[in-house]
Amino acid sequence: MLGDGGESPSRYELLSMVKKHSNLIGKTVVDEQDASDVEMDQKFWHDVLDLYFIGGRESKEQQDDDLLFFVRKMGLHGYGFNDNLEGNSPYFVRRWASKLDDLVGESSVIIDWRRSLYLNLIAHTSYSVTVAICSRQSLQNYQSNQGTPLSPIYKILKTVYASPSRVNFHLDSRKEVETKPAYPDICFAVDDFDSTFDAVVLTDTDHCYCVLLNAVGGAAFPTQMPPQDDTTTSSETGQINKTKLTLFSGFVSYQMVREAYDAGKSGFGSLLAFGHSSGKTKTDRIYMKGPGGRGEVEVAVSGVADHSLDEFGSPHSPLHISEGGFKIGAMVRKAASVAQVAAKNAYAAARNNSDGGMDMVPLKCCLMSISLPWEHIAHDLLFKLKADVFQ
């Protein structure tokens, strides 16, 4: 076993070993001649997982999530071994325990230890997603000179979590969700997407909707890692400020979102796919593919209602409540008034920014999820480092 006969390797040393023996990541057809003997050795991956996620003090002290994921070996017809205890999911989950072999028991024989190590590395890394509205000119300037960060018109930063499960939100009843295995894809879902991104509204034909997923810490960033060229060290504290690792970045223009929203069907090839919700309100799902077809972003798009002509609080208004009514009536009127003001402002901005070629409609875009293949994420966590493009 790794570490026998001496001190166990540090997390940084273990990650260096993993990187050295990760030539197979991203290959759809595996040629065993391209792989090292270690890379094909399941015992090596078993021992690395044991040291990194079971025996390491750092993992027990700093991990917020004590779940460990184990990927099943793939049979001739895909995943599934008729194991009544685990079902036919491509993976199963256990809570952390002090001994790995006791944790998995007889299931050890069906575990792909190499893929399990990568899945846990992904699941126990920390992530953030940035949703921003940028101008087309700003994006063009960035693409021509990537040394200059983008200056977004508006942006929101949100913590997200990697999961081998996919959450299917029902737009007609957001309390209803379905969860099913997504692996070999990894899903980053935003459960409160409707409230988190309520203010992300495209109000100008020059606007672009931008999504950025970053890895920011956790298992893929061991504290023993020495300073690199793309990290900075504080002279006062001596602490390393790690650069964010960008895993996904993409954008679509207002026109693309608007045309998909109006058409209600796919019209953008690999860039955008489209699907309707069955609810009464006009809220639709748009799927954006990342550059080169890598990854998928799911966005709930809805038009902002124009209340500029409404006479709020009139006797004919459904929200009109007599003076003798409950005090909650005043609270409802106040909340609705705030919403109306926001909608009026959005429409005023839309009218002012209209270029005359398109009847401008403000569109609210709420990010629901990002999905990426696990091999892309694992490869980038091990081999790439890229700065955040936003200031």
Rank of each mutant, 00 (worst) to 15 (best):
V341W: 10
K242H: 15
D198E: 10
L212T: 14
V338Y: 04
G279K: 01
V301D: 00
R114V: 07
G218V: 09
G78E: 02
V252I: 08
T223L: 11
K265I: 05
V129N: 06
K73H: 11
E39C: 08
M288W: 04
S371A: 11
P315G: 02
P222L: 00
V177M: 09
E259T: 13
I370M: 05
W96G: 03
R57M: 15
V104S: 00
S108A: 13
R166K: 14
V109Y: 13
I54M: 12
S135R: 13
C365F: 01
G275A: 14
D198G: 06
Y254W: 03
S22H: 01
S22E: 00
D388F: 07
S278W: 07
A189V: 01
A260S: 14
S163E: 04
V338C: 03
D380M: 12
V299G: 01
F69K: 04
G6Y: 07
D194V: 01
I111V: 10
Q140V: 06
G356F: 03
W45V: 00
D47K: 06
F197L: 10
K158N: 10
F312Q: 14
G56E: 14
D359H: 14
M331D: 13
S151F: 13
Y52G: 12
S89W: 07
G5E: 04
P315S: 08
A260I: 08
A189Q: 02
A199W: 09
A123D: 03
A343N: 10
L309M: 12
Q391P: 15
G5C: 03
T231L: 06
L247R: 02
S253D: 02
I111K: 04
K334Q: 12
L100E: 05
S128Y: 14
V201T: 03
Y79W: 13
K282P: 11
V160I: 06
P291F: 05
A199K: 14
V93F: 03
K19W: 01
G75P: 09
P181K: 07
V304Q: 00
F69A: 08
Q143E: 11
K99H: 15
L272E: 02
N84I: 15
V30I: 13
S308V: 08
M331R: 14
D66Q: 12
S16F: 03
G264N: 01
Y209P: 05
L24G: 10
Y142L: 01
P152D: 02
S266T: 08
K155E: 12
Q137D: 15
Y52K: 14
Y127D: 02
L212R: 12
W45H: 02
A348M: 04
